[in-house]
Amino acid sequence: MPPTSHATWFHVHLVSDSTGETLNTLLKATTARFETAKPLEHVASLVRSHVQLDKVLSRIEQAPGLVMYTIVDAGMRRRLEVKCAELQVPAISVLDPLLNAFADYLGLEQTMRAGGQYELDEDYFRRIAAIDYTLAHDDGQMTWDLESADVVLVGVSRTSKTPTCMYLANRGIKAANVPLVPTSEPPGELFTVRHPLVIGLSASPDRLASIRAKRLMGLAAHQDAESYTDEASVRDEVTRAKRLFTQNGWPVIDVTRRSVEETAARILTLLSARRGGTA
């Protein structure tokens, strides 16, 4: 049967005894594989008592649909599964296959603790420190402190330097970014750093020109717009940037058709290789 162009709307209940971020990410990753699938999300996070679960079960009964859950408590899991069986809707414990595989491979018992990944431990404070650093070193700020970075992203305007840095910071990576501006030279500190991995971000000139034009329209700004958005000028910027990357031996990532997540994933791979397997 050929695929239909009409949207397929469906109810999906995300039930978690933690923040529910894992479920939300998995739902987006899964529905992305089904072009017309449009989920109507019912989110229930921090469900840690039977009273809270009662309300969740009531909502599922009122709007039956697929149920995705991450719940540690065995009694609450059982109640949820029984109710879903009665309503004849799927109930999926999304982490069970991974947890069971890890337990079998490692020969260890699972720690039955809700939200264990969000404890205020060393990793948590490392992420907070990375976010603080990244905010303070955005858009060429505090270049005298680039040596403290894990990653320094370099590129012309609108190559997604800032959002990529923020994504990396949320993974605990101290990321700074330095813009390449046609009217000035890059800061000297950029060429003397030893600790951080310096990476050049590039994109096709036509794509950059289009993004810049839309950016200026959104800001209702027109000063210097011609050189900023002219494709020939942008092509010259990109060429000079690539030449700079090559001269310094910096790895280059073309972000033309990459999302921020894909760019960050490539950066993490490069960083892991440089560190010998640990990012």
Results as ranks from 00 to 15, higher is better:
2 P>S: 05
2 P>K: 08
3 P>Q: 03
6 H>P: 06
7 A>P: 10
10 F>T: 00
17 D>C: 06
19 T>V: 11
19 T>I: 05
20 G>C: 04
20 G>D: 03
24 N>I: 05
26 L>P: 04
27 L>S: 01
30 T>H: 07
30 T>I: 00
32 A>D: 14
33 R>L: 12
33 R>H: 14
34 F>D: 00
36 T>G: 05
38 K>D: 03
38 K>L: 06
39 P>V: 01
39 P>H: 00
41 E>A: 03
43 V>N: 08
44 A>R: 11
48 R>E: 10
50 H>S: 08
55 K>P: 02
55 K>S: 07
56 V>K: 05
57 L>R: 11
57 L>G: 04
59 R>V: 06
59 R>W: 00
71 I>M: 09
75 G>A: 07
75 G>V: 00
77 R>F: 02
78 R>P: 01
88 Q>F: 14
90 P>L: 03
92 I>Q: 14
101 A>G: 07
106 L>M: 14
107 G>H: 05
108 L>M: 14
108 L>I: 13
111 T>L: 13
111 T>M: 13
113 R>K: 14
114 A>T: 10
124 Y>W: 03
126 R>Y: 00
128 I>Q: 06
129 A>I: 02
134 T>F: 06
139 D>Y: 04
140 G>W: 00
140 G>Y: 00
144 W>I: 12
154 V>H: 01
155 G>S: 03
156 V>K: 13
157 S>L: 01
158 R>D: 08
163 P>A: 09
167 Y>F: 15
167 Y>D: 08
170 N>P: 13
172 G>C: 04
175 A>S: 12
178 V>I: 14
179 P>L: 00
180 L>H: 10
181 V>N: 02
189 E>L: 09
190 L>E: 02
193 V>M: 13
193 V>P: 15
201 L>Q: 04
201 L>I: 04
202 S>L: 07
205 P>Q: 07
205 P>I: 14
209 A>Q: 09
211 I>A: 06
216 L>Y: 13
218 G>W: 03
219 L>S: 00
219 L>W: 04
222 H>S: 15
223 Q>R: 14
228 Y>K: 01
228 Y>C: 03
232 A>M: 10
243 R>V: 09
244 L>G: 05
251 P>A: 03
252 V>G: 01
253 I>W: 02
253 I>Q: 04
259 S>F: 08
259 S>L: 09
259 S>Y: 05
260 V>C: 05
269 T>D: 12
272 S>F: 12
273 A>C: 12
273 A>F: 06
